[in-house]
Write a protein that binds this DNA or RNA. Structure first.
Length: 481
RNA sequence: CGGAGAGUAGCGCAGCGGCAGCGCGCACGGUUUGGGACCGUGAGGUCGCCGGUUCAAAUCCGGCCUCUCCGACCA
């Protein structure tokens, strides 16, 4: 590992991002183009996110299951929109066991089709509904331009799939799960998000309606951090997912699907990170507190005393926070400080001879460049409180940044100028007539796309920013990842 | 897939027809330790891959692969 400083965020955001991912040991490039290895530290972060999602899925009545990686090609082709949307990015297995397969197998890009096929077998009666399933899995999409965590050929995610008796229930489920994503993003990852509806052209291939949570990254570009789809009866009809209602009438189900992926790790990096490196939200950080003991080597008495102090610290923290002790003598204190800052640990405890004398420790918050001392007796009470404060501060800071970089515009010429100039990477709220034509023109002329039609808006109506026709709603426009 | 750049030790780079180099990291020994310590001794290489030109190729030529950035596509 090189000792050189990382590229400052302001100088080259992409270079900064790649360096942080690798030097913080979150992930590495794999030998296959577009693929990545998630290293233990990055995987621990994912596990913490998984735990928070999984807990909420179970609280809302969902059960985990697992469906196969391989999907018959014919399944993908059953839903017209779906095949159109996913065909360009499919990985297809044509041979197995040295023989050409009779029917090619698609490596799942998402599992609506195979799950739809199984739902048909499992659902007979209205009594079987709702069916609430989630799976933790890897999926493959042959992306043209990969980026660590944000867009790799293979990625990890969860995909929820549910079937309901009525459209209203399906819609309710879709929104419920979107709200779970809002909660996880904001409460756990400390990332402020805007929940809203996707435009027709941005929605999932095969969905009736797609909802999204959109976040602003440190370079002001938008990132879709989670999606929830109301699939209507599109997949139910394609896969004949039917039930008998109370009146013995055969009805098609209404289905939903929703997903959040390892992309969230990219979102965390790009929302909170700074020129020192990664900054992790305490609630998801694999290591919440790093304890760095300091002593003069060769001074055995001093070392013993400091290590006794470390034992007291461990006792105070044990069971309350996730912590590690970095007592490596081969690295200077300064080196270790920098190392753990680069890796985003929210809170550092320094303990050396001076602290032992005064029965104190030095605390350093990762979110601020300042140190302060507290009595060792206050540790067990103070550290969890501090972690909460850091969590809140990260969210508040990110929200302030996003709000500062969100503008409301009504004039198209100004909009165009804005997207070319300094503000080119900001969120713009503007009335939009809702037509594909206007959306496509805006995209072609400004590179900005509609991120979502935010739920959080007054529906007073106005004029479309581009065509001037009546518009019912405002959309958020931004350049996106 | 279009445009640009890059691949030489783990990382960052120099060398650009004639012995494979530097800095950092790594190992060992010693001195150090409150913001990326220092000295010494070492280990580590099919110069991205394949082919061609040449007495001789990391270096010149052709093809391919990979990565990064900018587009189109996308969780």
């Amino acid at each position: 590992m090189s000792d050189e400083k990382i590229t400052p965020r302001s100088q080259d955001f992409s270079a900064w991002y790649n360096e942080v991912v690798q030097r913080a040991e979150l992930a590495d490039y794999a030998p296959v183009r577009g693929c990545m290895v998630i290293r233990p530290y990055g995987y621990a972060l994912w596990e913490n996110l998984q735990r928070e999602l999984d807990r909420r899925f179970k609280e809302t009545g969902h059960k985990n299951a697992y469906f196969p990686l391989f999907i018959p090609m014919s399944f993908i082709q059953k839903e017209a929109q779906h095949v159109e949307g996913f065909s360009p990015e499919l990985a297809v297995v044509t041979h197995g066991g040295g023989e050409k397969l009779e029917e090619p197998l698609v490596v799942r890009p998402t599992s609506e089709t195979v799950i739809g096929h199984m739902f048909k077998q499992w659902i007979k009666s209205y009594r079987d509904l709702p069916l609430l399933i989630n799976q933790w899995a890897n999926v493959v999409r042959w992306e043209l331009r990969p980026r660590l965590f944000l867009r790799t050929l293979e990625f990890l995610w969860q995909e929820g799939h549910t079937a309901h008796a009525t459209e209203a229930e399906a819609e309710e489920e879709t929104i419920r799960m979107l709200n779970v994503y809002v909660d996880v993003a904001q409460s756990e990852a400390a990332i402020p998000v805007i929940p809203g509806r996707k435009s027709e052209s941005e929605k999932f291939a095969g969905a009736l309606r797609s909802y999204t949570i959109e976040a602003m990254m440190g370079d002001k570009r938008a990132l879709q951090a989670g999606t929830s789809h109301n699939l209507g009866q599109n997949f139910a009809k394609a896969f004949e997912i039917q039930y008998l209602d109370k009146n013995n009438q055969l009805q098609y189900c209404w289905t939903t699907s929703w997903g959040m992926s390892t992309r969230m790790i990219g979102a965390i990096i790009m929302t909170h990170g700074d020129d020192q490196g990664l900054v992790l939200p305490p609630r998801l950080a694999p290591i919440q507190v790093i304890v760095v003991p300091i002593w003069k080597s060769g001074n055995q008495e001093e070392k013993t005393k400091v290590l006794e102090g470390v034992e007291r610290v461990k006792k105070a923290l044990g069971g309350r926070v996730r912590f590690e002790v970095d007592a490596r003598e081969e690295y200077s204190p300064g080196w270790r400080f920098n190392e753990w800052e680069l890796r985003g640990v929210p809170l550092r405890i320094e303990i050396g001879p001076k602290d032992i004398q005064k029965n104190q420790v030095v605390l350093a918050r990762r979110d601020m460049r300042e140190k302060f001392s507290i009595s060792q007796d206050q540790l067990s009470e103070h550290v969890p409180t501090l972690l909460d404060e850091i969590q809140k501060n990260l969210f508040a800071r990110a929200k302030e940044f996003r709000d500062e970089n969100t503008v409301e515009l009504g004039d198209y010429e100004k909009f165009k100028e804005f997207m070319e100039g300094e503000g080119s990477r900001s969120f713009v709220r503007a009335y939009w007539c809702g037509t594909r034509e206007c959306e496509a023109h805006i995209k072609a002329e400004t590179k900005a796309t509609t991120r979502c039609i935010s739920f959080e808006q007054e529906r007073t109506g106005g004029k479309c920013i581009r065509c001037g026709q009546d518009a019912k709603e405002k959309a958020i426009f931004a350049k996106a990842y």
